[in-house]
Structure formats: structure tokens, C-alpha cells
Design a protein around this nucleic acid. Structure first.
Length: 552
RNA sequence: GCGCCUGUAGCUCAGUCGGAUAGAGCAACCGCCUUCUAAGCGGUAGGUCGCAGGUUCGAUUCCUGCCAGGCGCGCCA
């Protein structure tokens, strides 16, 4: 699965550069060579299959013209096997053209690796706690949660593919004033009384009340209502997320934190680190020691715990469960928490630049009928996750939410999502998969197996085939980068590119024999190339939690 | 006032250590189905990468300032 040609090429080029430099220059120049040389894929095909600007980077320290350096490197790089040409262009770019049959061996690698193609060990040995959504169990999940439901789930899969050990966790805020208000609201609705002033007003409260009463006929007290409604609401959230193909390993209750004395335990730990102090009758954490703009109260003057107390205890609990990296995915309206959470980790004696990561997602704006839908709980105009899925389907919703970087505020146009056209790129990618599936079905009928038995890499010499192979070779690097940067949208963007390249190949390269044309090696080779492409599309879509249909 | 995010084609948005002529989809226009899925392919048109400086062989990318928009700054949860 490792050792695709592109990977080994980068390593070999690096070695060649080191050799060439060592022969001509002193150690100073040699030490300027980066640990790994980035081979980029030029947009312009005239610039070869791979290019590197290493000569320009080394020119300054070497005190020579970049083109002279490039000439020096060119000879050494040309000795690498599987390369058909090394050219120097422009100010000193080195363009490498790969021998086509050598590149085509990638088909073998992909078909042998199957669903594992793209996996790596980049994050092997790292234990990650990935927390996302973490909604109050006081209402349905809405669009504010939806972006994370899709992106968080995809990120979890991507991190796993890069070798990390990932636990996906949902923190249930099942404690505090909001829960009490929730209980009072449901009770009021059930008993025909007015909902409290700052209580929950949505229509769902009335329905919830009915369901709760039906299940618990003798119910009367506020606490009973709160608990019964909590169970129903949580189950509903879990159900909706499951339908959205988002799964969690741990549903962590805030209450359990308090029942297990985790807050006291955390306080003790922080005290021992010397960052806890008392003032005005309250107990504080001196987060300003680590860049927060103000210190934070843990225990209020009256003895009650703040929400921050739970956050702190929860973080320490996570670390004591053995997670190296705790990733929090929060909405933009919580970005003020970043500093205090980082400072909390530092106060606990951890490395805030490694042990804790906070990803902030910008808000999603929803358009329908050319107008922005204002989301307001009070006005009852929230759109739930369930409604979104009903309107556009799981695949379209997930894909659309995932294909943008989360630090960009995004606009979702429901009218576009509802259309089964290429307005929505998910269909473009899925169509490529379905199209290949159709080709392979037909191939099978003709006795072309699309396996490696009759695969001859020397058959794949067409420009389109070469381009497709180049794209397929990129996939492992894309997955690794997406994992390292915590950016699953890179997978989606890559799949769109791959689908485009395949469609281009399909238009110019006939896979199956025409009419009574005899079956030859080229048909077998192209069918295998199709199978490899389908595999990569399927692997990528799987990382996004989007289906890869056999037919459309 | 302070902090975070954003500003790239008419629209929605990509663009990993700074690299070659800044990309994609949609919308517009012109072509391509007598054989593998036209939810496709090819082409045309469309840009002061918010503005101004700085760093250097080279800046959409890095630094500074400014402008515009979004969000946040509780012993609330």
C-alpha cells in the first residue's frame, strides 16, 4: 500500500539531490536541502509529470545561478529508474517525466491494497479524542450542529486512515439551568400551563410532552418530566445522527463527571500545579498565566460550580483516559473559549500546542427561494438536521457540508441541493463511480475481468491514462495531508478532481472492444485502470461517509 | 475598545514548505450521443486575488497598517 511510485520517486529525487550537492559543494549547501523534496504536479502538462523548484531554493546559499544548479541535479536525477526525461525550464524548475509503464504499475498497488489504499502510518501511535456536536439534550439537533456532524465524522475517519487511534465523543450537557428550564417547559406543556418566560418555546416541546406522558402515565413532578424528556430527546438525537451516518464511540454525560467527583479531582490537580487561588469568596483558575485575557471562576461565591468547572474537569478526565490529543470542534460563537481551554491545559501541566486542539467552525447560512433563512429558536424558525436530510438527502447534505474548509463561513442553497444536477458536485463524483461500475459490469459480460491477471502496464500510454494514473497516485498524500491539517474537505476536492480526470479519460479512451473487435491487452489494462479508479473513488467517499452508488 | 475568522471570475468557492500563463463548478455562449451511463466531454468569454506598503530572484500565499463583513469578549449555560 505504501511505496506507490510517486512516493518512492520523491525519496529517490531527494537522494539524488543529496549526492549531486555533496559532489560539488560544502556542507553548508548540503544542510540547506530540506528533509523531503516536494514534487508538485504541474498544471501545465508541458512541464512533465512532476516538478520541483529545489534548484531555485538552493541557488542562493550555493551562490550560483539556479539553472546551473538545476543542470547539476539533472544528471543525477536522470539516473533514477522509471524516469523517461528530466528537463530544466524557466528560471530553474526541474521537470520530470515518468516512464509510463512504470507509473502504470500503480494499478497493481491499488488493486492489491483495495480498501486500504490511501491509509498511512503518519499518525500511528497517537491516541485522539475527537469531540464534536456536544449539544444540550433539550431539543432537536439543528443546522448549527449539522456542519460538525458531517465534518467531525469525516475527520474521525480521516484521522483513522492516517493511523491514529480515534475515539469520537459526544459530550451531553445534561446538567444545569438549561436542563431545569427544559423540564419545566415540558411539564408546563403537558399540564396545559403557560411555558415559563425564558423556557423552551418550540413546537417540539408540546410533542415531547405528549410522548413523555404517553410513556409515563403517572408523571407529575418537574424532575420526573425533566428526566423523562431528557431520555426521549437524547434518544431522538442519537437516532437522527445514526441516520446521518455519524457515529460516536462515547456519549459522555456531564452529570457523570460530577457524580464521580471529577471536578474535585481536577481542582486538586490544578491546585498542585499552583494555578488555583481564592478571591472574593470564589475559587479561580489563573488562566492568565497562559495567555487568557482574564482569570476564570471555578467555584462561585455561593459554592455553586461554573460551567467552566465542568469543562476543566472534562479535559483532565480525557487526558487521564489516555488520550494524547484532545480535539474540540466548536462553533464560531464559542471562539472565545479557545484561549481559556488552551490555558486550562497548560495549567494542568500539559502542552497546549500539542495535547489540545480547538477547531473553530464558522456559521452556515441557509438560502431557500433566494432568501436567507434566519434561524431563531424563539421565532421557531430553526431547521433541524432531520429536516435538512428530508429535503436534500444524506449524501448531498454531508458532502456539501464537508467540501468547504470550516474556517470559511459557508452558504447552503437548499434549492441547488435539491436538484439532482451537477450544480451539486456530489453527483459528479458519484456519477463517476456509477459510470465505472457500469463499464465493469459490461466488461464482465464480455469476459474482461478487470483484475491483475491479464494486466500489462505497458498498455497504458495514452495521455489521458497517464493523467488518470497521476491523479490516483496523489490520493495517499491527500489523505495524509487532510489528517495532518484536520481538513477533510481536501478529500472532497480531490475526489472532484479525480472524477473529472476519469470523465476525460472515458471520453477519449474506449475501454471495451467496439463491435466485433477482438479482446486484447489494452482492454484488460484499461478495465483494470477503471477498477483502480473505482476503488479510490469508493475509498474517498467512504472517508466522507457518502455512498458510492453502483447505478444512478 | 480588545480578540478570532473572512475578503480570489456575475454566483458559490478551491489554491499543503512563497514558484511557471491564479483554478473548479454553476450561470452565459458555441460544439459533441448509429455501440462502454450526455448526472458526461471539448471550446469561448469572464480577474487590480479588498486597499497600501514591506521582506526577495519571485507574493493570492509571509509581515505591518488600513477598509469592509461575520462572530465573540459574564461568579450565564
Amino acid at each position: 500500500m505504501q511505496g506507490s511510485f510517486a512516493d518512492s520517486l520523491a525519496a529517490q529525487v531527494h537522494a539524488a539531490v543529496v549526492r549531486a550537492i555533496a559532489a560539488e559543494f560544502d556542507g553548508e549547501v548540503a544542510s540547506a536541502i530540506p528533509d523531503s523534496i516536494n514534487l508538485e504536479r504541474p498544471k501545465n502538462r508541458d512541464h512533465g509529470d512532476y516538478a520541483t523548484s529545489i534548484a531555485l531554493q538552493l541557488a542562493k546559499v550555493a551562490g550560483k545561478n539556479p539553472r546551473d544548479i538545476a543542470t547539476l541535479l539533472q544528471k543525477e536525477i536522470a539516473t533514477i529508474g522509471g524516469i523517461s526525461a528530466v528537463d530544466i525550464a524557466g528560471p530553474g524548475f526541474i521537470n520530470i517525466t515518468v516512464d509510463r509503464s512504470a507509473q502504470a504499475e500503480l494499478v497493481t498497488v491499488i488493486l492489491d491494497s483495495g480498501a486500504h489504499y490511501g491509509e498511512s502510518t503518519a499518525l500511528a501511535g497517537v491516541s485522539v479524542n475527537l469531540e464534536f456536536i456536544s449539544a444540550n439534550p433539550t431539543g432537536p439537533l439543528h443546522l448549527g450542529h449539522t456542519r460538525w456532524a458531517a465534518v467531525g465524522d469525516a475527520l474521525g475517519r480521516v484521522l483513522s486512515a492516517a493511523g491514529a487511534s480515534v475515539t469520537r465523543e459526544f459530550y451531553i450537557n445534561d446538567r444545569g439551568r438549561q436542563m431545569d428550564l427544559f423540564g419545566e417547559s415540558v411539564q408546563a406543556a403537558a399540564q396545559g400551563k403557560p411555558i415559563p418566560e425564558d423556557g423552551y418555546q418550540g413546537e417540539y416541546i408540546a410533542e415531547l410532552a405528549k410522548e413523555v406522558v404517553a410513556k409515563n402515565p403517572g408523571i407529575s413532578s418537574t424532575i420526573e418530566f425533566r428526566e423523562a424528556a431528557y431520555q426521549v430527546q437524547l434518544a431522538q438525537q442519537q437516532h437522527v445522527l445514526k441516520d446521518f451516518h455519524t457515529t460516536f464511540d462515547v456519549w459522555f454525560s456531564e452529570r457523570s463527571l460530577h457524580e464521580s467527583n471529577a471536578v474535585d479531582h481536577a481542582l486538586e490537580k490544578l491546585r498542585s500545579q499552583g494555578h488555583v487561588f481564592e478571591e472574593d469568596g470564589a475559587v479561580w483558575l489563573r488562566t492568565t498565566d497562559f495567555g487568557d485575557d482574564k482569570d476564570r471562576v471555578i467555584i462561585k461565591e455561593g459554592g455553586d460550580l461554573t460551567y467552566f468547572a465542568s469543562d476543566t474537569a472534562y479535559y483532565i478526565n480525557k487526558r487521564e483516559r489516555g488520550f494524547d490529543i484532545c480535539i474540540y470542534m466548536l462553533g464560531a460563537d464559542h471562539h472565545g473559549y479557545v484561549q481559556r481551554l488552551k490555558a486550562t491545559a497548560a495549567c494542568a501541566g500539559d502542552n497546549p500546542d500539542y495535547n489540545i486542539e480547538i477547531l473553530i467552525g464558522q456559521l452556515v447560512k441557509i438560502m431557500e427561494g433566494g432568501e436567507e433563512l434566519k434561524l431563531s429558536k424563539r421565532a421557531g424558525t430553526i431547521i433541524t438536521l432531520e429536516e435538512l436530510v428530508e429535503k436534500v438527502g444524506v449524501d448531498a447534505a454531508r458532502y456539501t457540508l464537508i467540501r468547504y474548509p470550516v474556517d470559511t463561513p459557508m452558504v447552503m442553497d437548499l434549492d441547488i441541493l435539491k436538484k439532482n444536477t451537477n450544480d451539486n458536485p456530489v453527483y459528479y463524483v458519484q456519477y463517476a463511480h456509477a459510470r465505472i461500475a457500469a463499464v465493469l459490469r459490461n466488461a464482465s459480460d464480455l469476459g474482461i475481468s478487470a483484475t491483475l491477471e491479464k494486466f500489462n502496464s505497458g498498455e497504458l500510454t495514452h495521455d489521458r491514462e497517464n493523467e488518470l494514473l497521476g491523479a490516483l497516485a496523489e490520493y495517499p498524500r491527500i489523505v495524509t495531508t487532510a489528517a495532518q491539517l484536520r481538513q477533510p474537505h481536501r478529500i472532497a476536492r480531490y475526489l472532484e478532481e479525480l472524477a473529472g480526470v476519469y470523465h476525460g479519460f472515458y471520453a477519449d479512451c474506449r475501454v471495451l472492444p467496439l463491435g466485433d473487435e477482438p479482446i486484447s491487452d489494452v482492454h484488460h489494462a484499461r478495465a483494470a485502470l477503471c477498477a483502480a479508479t473505482r476503488q479510490v473513488l469508493a475509498n474517498g467517499l467512504a472517508l466522507l461517509g457518502v455512498s458510492a452508488p453502483e447505478r444512478m
